[in-house]
Design a protein around this nucleic acid. Structure first.
Length: 646
RNA sequence: GCCGAUGUAGCUCAGCUGGUAGAGCAGCUGAUUUGUAAUCAGCUGGUCGGCGGUUCGAAUCCGUCCAUCGGCUCCA
């Protein structure tokens, strides 16, 4: 007998070799029906795998994230089986579960697969699922595993097996399909009742651009048809929040093929919004001791040779600009730091001057690959809310803290509550890859970790993800479809101060090298506005939105009164328009609602006589009438509330 | 850049197996003077993404290029 401890710390005795499923059955039939896997001593196992020793176990259902993973991982196998039956001779790469569903990378050989093939595959999957095929785990010796896939002729699996240790290799067999797999899997396929293949895409084998591109098929499955429908509905809803769609509808920005790919054109309303964001940040930065600077949009090739960017990115950039002078070349600036380094170098510095914080909304140009461009989130010309802090190594921690506070302030003012903080540190086993002294790296990495801790942030730490020149902290926010985008970033840099020979005179009257911190709380204006659009579905905070108020006269008789109201509001810095069109009120309201204008003021005879406005709030409806002064105070109060004392 | 899909009026979309392009909204003109999510009528607007081919005839079939979308790789 072995002792099994359940999550509530209750202890039960079972015969050796009992499975999670059997334990579930001993508790209740209902639980047994829903169990998809079992967490055994913190490792997720098949529900059917025999447990041989005393263990702590937790039975996992589909409500548990690990349960969902198991369902989707098993679904990937099911899809592979269906595909193998439909397209004999195909070869398989890897097929994991992902956040929403699963995929499998497949070499289809001479077949070309498109979404037209999906219904056929889905049907086959459902047919197989109904067969209640069991997933059977088998431990195999490396030689045996190699032999199996050699016979099958699947070089991808062979490559994977070669990297594995003998004695750690397991196969899973379900129906006609056997796969190299760590597991775990569902007890059987009958839980999979709703299947949807979502897309087909090319994916390089092992993510390596130089290797063969396999066909990746994405799909998702659910135990109930209803859940699938809900998920598809969610995707539909998410599409409505797409910033590219909203940007067009709300007249914020556009693109032109004639202007060029990935070069956004900000329309008046978008430009206004962006300007307001910039003013907001400038104000915050001024308080935090930053100074604004302005630099040109191009820089001599020598600048980038000094910075090292020419050697690294020269070939993959926009082509250099030549001049009538032979050999003279300029580059569109791909970043602001080299210019800022030269600003630092313009005069000698004492340690008393530090930290020096210089900021610029700097527009930069990077030649992104055409397949990479995506609305405003990935463009070829964009404006960073950039700043560089030059400080002593001892000041890094305080400066880091200051920057983080700015990022948090912004996220708060814009109600970004759901973000991920990623700290990228160097790979401890590969220290020689990085520039800068061991001592400085340790100091700054420790500083970042401490600051995050002090501010109570939940962080994700990525070892080996640091830039070669320093550790960094990135703030990621998700878009409508759950894709992660990096917004704010804070990076420590030991490289550029070296290359530009930046110096300051210390209290010891000796020359020292400052540390540079790059930081951009928004990241770029383009990406930030894109993510903000999706985050708010276009319902911007009142302080930020392009038009705060629109006045809707009932008929043209009340245009004069509307103008009077409009002037009063504009005098109080409330951004107000009048809809003077010869349309019915219903139509004007509809259009204003669609444009997501926060407040609509309907004015007619009654309002004119009483000196009032009839207030309608976007999304909330009629709020009744108010004196004009009263309305102005209300708006001011609401803005004040959103911004706090910024 | 690579894999797959898509490309019809400013926008959203229809156009079956090849027979020479259509709706709604927007815009313009006129009527209407309007009370909380679409007033009515008339009109304008398209080398059907570009180029080449097959055909008596191409939005429709084929090729190629471009762009967009979903991914991959990349992101100083």
């Amino acid at each position: 007998m072995i002792t099994i401890t359940l999550p509530d710390n209750s202890v039960r005795q079972y015969p050796e070799g009992v499975s999670g499923l059997e334990i579930a059955k001993s508790i209740s039939e209902g639980l047994a029906r829903n169990v998809v896997a079992a967490k055994v001593n913190d490792e997720v196992w098949d529900a059917t795998r025999p447990i041989m020793t005393d263990s702590k176990i937790k039975l996992l259902t589909l409500d548990d994230p690990s349960g969902k993973s198991t369902l989707w991982h098993s679904s990937a196998h099911l899809m592979a089986e269906a595909i193998e039956l439909l397209y004999p001779g195909v070869k398989f790469g890897i097929g994991p579960d992902i956040e929403n569903g699963f995929y499998y990378d497949i070499d289809f050989g001479s077949y070309t697969i498109s979404s037209d093939d999906f219904p056929k595959i889905e049907q086959k999957m459902l047919d197989l699922a109904r067969g209640k095929q069991q997933f059977i785990r088998k431990e195999v010796a490396k030689a045996e595993a190699l032999d199996y896939f050699t016979k099958k002729g699947d070089e991808y699996k062979l490559e994977l097996i070669r990297d594995l240790q003998d004695g750690q290799i397991t196969f899973y067999e379900s129906g006609h399909f056997t796969d190299l797999c760590r597991g775990p899997h569902l007890p059987d396929t009958s839980l999979i009742k709703a299947v949807k293949l979502l897309s087909v895409a090319g994916a390089y084998w092992r993510g390596d651009e130089t290797r063969k591109q396999l066909t990746r098929i994405y799909g998702i499955t659910f135990p109930k048809q209803k859940e699938l429908q809900d998920y598809l509905l969610f995707l539909e809803e998410a599409k409505k929040r797409d910033h590219r769609k909203l940007g067009k509808e709300l007249e914020l920005f556009t693109f032109s093929q004639k202007v060029g790919l990935g070069l956004p054109l900000w329309l008046p309303r978008g430009a206004q919004l962006r300007e307001r964001l910039e003013m907001f940040l400038k104000k915050v930065q001024k308080k935090a001791g930053y100074q604004q600077v302005i630099c040109p949009h191009i820089g001599n090739v020598e600048l980038y040779k000094t910075s090292g960017h020419y050697q690294k990115y020269g070939e993959s950039s926009f082509r250099p600009i030549s001049t009538p002078v032979p050999g003279e070349e300029f580059f569109l600036k791909p970043m602001n730091c080299p210019h800022h380094c030269e600003i630092y170098n313009a005069s000698p510095h004492s340690y008393r001057d530090l930290p020096l914080r210089i900021a610029e909304f700097g527009t930069v140009y990077r030649y992104e690959q055409s397949g990479e461009l995506h609305g405003l989130t990935r463009v070829r010309g964009f404006t960073q809310d950039d700043a560089h802090i030059f400080c002593t190594p001892e000041q890094v921690k305080d400066e880091f803290k200051g920057v983080m506070d700015i990022v948090m302030l912004i996220f708060k003012a814009l109600k970004f509550n759901d973000f991920i903080v990623q700290i990228s540190l160097r790979d401890p086993n590969n220290k020689e890859k990085y520039i800068g002294s061991d001592e400085n790296w340790e100091k700054s990495e420790r500083a970042i970790l401490e600051v995050a801790e002090e501010r109570g942030l939940t962080t994700v730490i990525e070892l080996g993800e640091a830039a070669f020149y320093g550790p960094k902290m990135d703030f990621m926010v998700k878009d409508a479809l759950g894709r992660k985008w990096q917004l704010g970033t804070i990076q420590v840099d030991y490289n550029l101060p070296e290359r530009f020979e930046l110096e300051y005179i210390g209290s010891d009257n000796q020359k020292h090298r400052p540390v540079m911190i790059h930081r951009a709380p928004f990241g770029s204006m383009e990406r930030f506005v894109a993510v903000l659009l999706e985050h708010t579905a276009g319902n911007f905070p009142l302080w930020l939105t392009p038009d705060q108020v629109i006045i809707l006269p009932i008929s043209e008789k009340f245009i004069d009164y509307s103008k009077k109201v409009c002037q009063l509001l504009n005098n109080s810095d409330i951004r107000t328009q009048i809809d003077e069109r010869n349309e019915k009120t219903g139509k004007k309201i509809r259009d204003a609602e669609l444009m997501k204008v926060p407040f609509m003021l309907i004015v007619g005879e009654r309002e004119e006589n009483e000196g009032t406005v009839s207030v309608r709030k976007h999304g909330a409806g009629d709020l009744g009438s108010k004196k004009i002064d009263e309305f102005i105070v209300d708006i001011a109060r609401e803005v004040q509330c959103e911004l706090g004392d910024i």
